[in-house]
Design a protein around this nucleic acid. Structure first.
Lengths: 148, 148
DNA sequence: TCGATTTACATAGGTTTCCTATGTAAAGTG
DNA sequence: CACTTTACATAGGAAACCTATGTAAATCGA
């Protein structure tokens, strides 16, 4: 098997990522709000703008998503004691349960298909996730935030 | 570092894939038709329904995308000598050039960000692509279509 | 302390990317 | 040669985004 160039691999990565997203969405993701639940689960309560920045979307988009999630009962908006302009978005128990459900489904889809490939291990999956994460990291060229 | 479970990794894969897709689209992908150009480049001329199956989208969606691509001059629809109902979609020279342009851009975005990570190699990128491909493979376990 | 700027959201309006349902015409089938 | 299937096109609509802009709270300077 010939070794494809890094450039070919790079564009393949985005093409296949796009297909995966559509596959999962059609299969069982009830809304784009899944990402939001995932963020809240990792970080705890956040304000809308902070959520939008983390998810790399516009603030109005995040407002809409949070509203949908709130209607579904998966998050609540509670007053921010430190700032009356904003509210903190909290993940509810139902939201946590929903997140678990979605994760099981997409995990099932991914790991089931991966299991058929004896040449690909969980380690390889971890590598794939690390690569995607690395690509998604913002550009900290001259001003690293130096968190310690 | 603790080793995350295969399930966690599986759901992470889709979440990050979704973010990557949005990142690339915002950055420079002029349309969803990129995938179609990519398929035609790999396979040669195809009819609409075949394209839709390969790209895992509905036939009307593919009809629309091919029309857009044809308007842009990146593909042409030519009569199928073997079947008057369908036409074969051909990639034009301009289409091939556009595909090259897009690939350069997304490859630049990916490899540039990846280059900052000394712990991730081109091999790891290849692994990531292989994992995504594996997940996207249809399920042909018991009923291979036996194309020969 | 009070006007001026900034910040955090909400709302309005529009685009892109998909889908299902359905109609039409060519291709196979008994 | 009717009858079903196949390949597309069209109609209509939903979902996930965006930019521009308005409102109210927070902050800042004189």
């Amino acid at each position: 098997m010939s070794t494809p160039s890094a450039d070919d691999l790079s564009s393949d990565l985005t093409v296949y990522a796009a297909r995966l997203v559509r596959l999962v969405r059609r299969e069982h993701a009830p809304s784009a709000g899944t990402r939001v639940l995932s963020i809240l689960d990792e970080t705890g309560p956040l304000a809308i703008t902070a959520l939008a920045q983390i998810d790399r979307c516009s603030q109005p988009t995040m407002t809409g998503q949070v509203n949908q999630l709130a209607e579904a009962g998966w998050v609540t908006k509670e007053p921010n004691p430190a700032d009356a302009r904003s509210s903190l978005v909290h993940l509810t128990e139902a939201g946590r349960a929903e997140l678990g459900r979605i994760r099981q489904l997409s995990a099932g889809l991914v790991s089931e298909r991966l299991a058929r490939r004896t040449d690909l291990s969980t380690d390889d999956l971890a590598t794939a996730v690390a690569v995607l994460q690395a690509v998604l990291e913002p550009s900290p060229p001259t001003t690293p935030e130096g968190h310690s």
